[in-house]
Each structure stands twice: as structure tokens, then as C-alpha cells.
């Protein structure tokens, strides 16, 4: 049970992966659990509202979450987040292809460590991101 598991504060990057796609001024950002056991934890915690806050500074006007339990995945559809879309944006990344790493890197949460894949560097006690 989750209650028995040690918790650690980490970004979603530790337990899920993602890809962003664009259509007009709308970005869709998927969230796919590495381990099916993480699906319930993500479903409870990664709400559309919380995701909206992460993208609000880019102009996001709304977020819809679609659940795909058979694939241990979610699809977040984020409106008005691409500065007008690929033909209007002044961003270097006009498609918003990099935006998946906002969800993976900036959603930081206490998570049970047994949801992290066994091979993950996050489980290595010496793991640190390179810093100055």
C-alpha cells in the first residue's frame, strides 16, 4: 500500500514522460506513467486546475484533462498557450514542442518512491542535477 512507502519530493519527471503537440493556438501535452501503479496517484494529484497554473504565464485560458487508464496516460489540452499558434508566435519554439518539460519539470510533489522505475537515476542516493 502507498501508506507504507517512503515519500520523496520530486518533479513528475521521476514517474512519467510526456510529448507536446500543437493545433492552432492549442497545445496538447500528454502524461504517460512509466509504471501503471503510478496512474492512480497521477489521476488524484495532477488536476487540470494545477496544470493550468503551470501554463498561465504563457496565456493559457483553460485546460481539459482526458484520462486513458488502459494506457496509464492522460492528455492535457491547453487552450491559447502558443502565442497565436505556429504561424503567429514570436517564440523561438513556435510549435511549443518544448512545453512538455513544464509539466514534467515544474510540477513538484511528494510521491511514493515505489512509483519510480527501478532504473531511474532519481533512486540513486548520490544523484544530483549538475549545478555550479
Amino acid at each position: 500500500m502507498i501508506s507504507c512507502s517512503e515519500m520523496r519530493r520530486l518533479p513528475l519527471h521521476a514517474i512519467a514522460h510526456s510529448r507536446a503537440g500543437d493545433k492552432g493556438n492549442v497545445s496538447n501535452v500528454s502524461l504517460v506513467a512509466y509504471r501503471p501503479e503510478a496512474y492512480k496517484f497521477l489521476a488524484t494529484n495532477v488536476t487540470a486546475d494545477k496544470v493550468h497554473k503551470l501554463y498561465a504565464h504563457l496565456g493559457a485560458s483553460g485546460v481539459t484533462r482526458y484520462d486513458l487508464p488502459l494506457l496509464s496516460a492522460f492528455n492535457f489540452v491547453i487552450d491559447d498557450v502558443l502565442d497565436g499558434g505556429v504561424n503567429a508566435s514570436r517564440s523561438i519554439d513556435r510549435h511549443g514542442k518544448t512545453l512538455s518539460y513544464i509539466l514534467l519539470g515544474r510540477f513538484i510533489i511528494d510521491m511514493p518512491i515505489d512509483l519510480i522505475p527501478d532504473s531511474s537515476p532519481y533512486l540513486d542516493p548520490d544523484f544530483r542535477w549538475q549545478t555550479y
Binding site: 510529448r19 503537440g21 493545433k23 496538447n28 500528454s30 504517460v32 482526458y66 494506457l71 492528455n75 489540452v77
Partner: peptide
């Protein structure tokens, strides 16, 4: 396959 399935998709239904 899952990442690509959801790429540029909105409502999966």
C-alpha cells in the same frame, strides 16, 4: 507508441 498516439490529439474519444 503511447506518446505518439496522443501527439496532436485533443479528445481521445
Amino acid at each position: 507508441v503511447t506518446e505518439q498516439l496522443l501527439y496532436e490529439m485533443h479528445d481521445p474519444t
